[in-house]
Design a binder for these strands. Structure first.
Length: 421
DNA sequence: TCTGGGGTCCTAGGACCC
DNA sequence: TCTGGGGTCCTAGGACCC
């Protein structure tokens, strides 16, 4: 039996914690570049604004004067997420944190009654201590727990935020009411394909012969099907285990054409990637840099490319990562194109092995001098602003737009400074 | 005017080897 | 002119998730 706890409208709920005036209003939180909608209050959902809606299309759905648009503050969301997970972790073991706003766990007690009371209590405590509304769904598999959680959120008859989807007859009824595209693991491509075969609901899907599902599609989809039948297929790889890739990328706030300005972004992304590697006690075996133009502009030539380079020795050292990211960038840089996005990715990651030398371990002056010599060398080669030993993202020409930071919660200045982690 | 960022897994196909 | 069969490894790309 699996439980899934999921925060309701998480980013919007976070904003409301610090600004109660947002309660009852149509509120949306926008993606990094104020690009599109990544969280909606119930009121905004009721107005018909879809997830992922580009910000400039919001007016197609509702009077723009009635809706509050906010730039995302991911550092603050991460902070509140940790607090939610702490409250939850005190109550249940085997917590698998799946994303910033949801976690799976095993039945906390032997019997259903006690488990239900315990979880209803957790829902209350999270609201009371952290200020975030959450819902809990229980079911025999994680895919069904997703559906159960959805019901816990939607069904008005559920007043304590906890819903059990366990009895086979109940599961059957619910699957009949679940559109195929609402099943976890079935995106719009698969939903489109399945519908063309007459599979419209989760119940239709479960009736397909599993061997057919596998031969027509994949083992992944067959696992989803078995999960819907109530079998636990371990389809989740919780994010709490070590990362296999680490990426830092941004869409620029405007089109960038100059080498130095993009190199500045690449260096910044590489610094952050290296820092995260060290935070996770990992080293990367290779580094990839990519650049791309503006995919929505048809009036200018589009260019997109990437280059992956191995490191001589797996490393998490800022200097090493930055240098290789710039090497990769130099391989793909083309003069005369308009760039809108760049990113740096660490791959072939190894964990927990021998700790590599990194710049923050360098204490004696000889090492430090050699380090600075290296920095100078790189700066000479790539431009004076190439290397900065300041962790975190800098403000450059490429910086994303964030024009909707909620100014009313001024005490949160701390959260609004630099781009999110 | 304006369309995010950061992940995972699976598969097909090519390179290479014996 | 002829030119097998079977295996592994790697990569690119496509699908999905929040």
């Amino acid at each position: 039996m699996y439980g899934l706890i999921d925060c309701n409208n998480f980013f919007v709920s976070c904003e409301r914690v610090f600004d109660p005036r947002l309660n009852g209003k149509k509120v949306v939180v926008l993606s990094n570049n104020d690009g599109c909608v990544i969280a909606r209050s119930n009121e905004a959902k009721a107005a018909g604004i879809p997830m992922g809606c580009p910000a400039f299309k919001i007016k197609d759905y509702t009077n723009p004067n009635e809706i509050i648009q906010l730039s995302a503050r991911h550092i603050m969301y991460r902070d509140l997420s940790n607090r939610v997970m702490n409250v939850l972790g005190n109550e249940v073991g085997n917590l698998q944190i799946y994303s910033v706003d949801e976690a799976f766990f095993r039945l906390p007690y032997e019997d259903v009654e006690t488990s239900h009371r315990a979880m209803a209590d957790v829902v209350k405590k999270v609201k009371q201590y952290v200020g975030i509304p959450v819902s809990v769904g229980f079911a025999p598999s994680r895919t069904l727990a997703k559906i159960a959680n959805h019901i816990a959120k939607k069904d008005k008859r559920i007043t304590d935020g906890v819903y059990w989807l366990v009895r086979p007859e109940a599961i059957e009824i619910i699957l009949r009411r679940t559109p195929i595209e609402d099943v976890w693991g079935i995106g719009h491509r698969l939903a489109y394909s399945l519908k063309s075969r007459g599979i419209k609901t989760a119940a239709d899907f479960v009736k397909m012969p599993p061997s057919l599902v596998r031969s027509l599609y994949s083992v992944t989809l067959e696992r989803t099907q078995r999960e819907l039948m109530g079998h636990d297929c371990q389809i989740v790889n919780p994010v709490t285990i070590a990362h296999k890739t680490i990426m830092t990328s941004r869409t620029f706030g405007k089109i960038i054409t100059k080498y130095d300005e993009i190199a500045d972004a690449v260096v910044t992304f590489a610094e952050k990637t290296a820092r995260q590697l060290r935070d996770e006690n990992s080293v990367a075996g290779s580094i990839m840099t990519y650049v791309r133009g503006d995919r929505f502009r048809e009036d200018i030539p589009f260019y997109s490319n990437s280059c992956q380079l191995k490191l001589a020795t797996p490393s998490n050292d800022t200097m090493t990562i930055v240098r290789q990211a710039l090497n990769a960038f130099n391989n793909i840089w083309r003069e005369g194109y308009a760039y809108r996005k760049a990113g740096v990715m660490a791959l072939d990651i190894e964990h927990g092995g021998a700790i590599q030398l990194n710049v923050f371990d360098l204490e004696d002056h000889g090492k430090l001098r050699r380090l600075m010599t290296s920095i100078d060398g790189i700066n000479n080669q790539y431009g004076t602003r190439s290397v900065k030993l300041v962790p975190g993202l800098q403000r450059g020409e490429w910086s994303p737009n964030q024009t909707h930071i909620n100014a009313t919660s001024k005490t949160l200045h701390f959260y609004t400074g630099i781009i999110h982690s």
